[in-house]
């Protein structure tokens, strides 16, 4: 790894670091009562919940650290935290 002038790094290169391995609890999006409000996308500190083609929101488990904020804030209680099995 060579140093660039000014220690500049490629934009968004943090994606190389798959933080999903930190997870202890996994948020499972059940889509039973989901009203597509998008609050899970707004409150995720990782920014790993994105809107899909179907209008529903999907977490990227490569990066989700399992903090549980989405499950806590979901207004219809449609996200469940389950123990990660590895």
């Amino acid at each position: 790894m060579g140093l660039n002038i000014g220690c500049a790094a490629a934009p968004g290169r943090a994606r190389d670091n798959k933080t999903g391995s930190w997870r202890v609890f996994k948020p499972v999006f059940k889509y039973d009562k989901c009203v597509k409000c998008g609050l899970c996308e707004v409150v995720c500190p990782e920014g790993c919940v994105r809107e899909g083609q179907d209008g529903y929101y999907h977490p990227d488990y490569n990066y989700c650290k399992g903090c549980g904020l989405c499950a806590e804030e979901c207004p219809v209680d449609d996200i469940e935290l389950v123990q990660e099995e590895k």
Binding site: P11, G12, A14, R15, D16, N17, K18, T19, W22, P45, E46, G47, C48, D60, N62, Y63, K65, G66, C67, G68, L69
Partner: peptide
């Protein structure tokens, strides 16, 4: 602000 940063969970 891209995924993969090293903040604690729930930062």
């Amino acid at each position: 602000f891209e995924c993969g940063h090293r903040a604690c969970g729930g930062c």
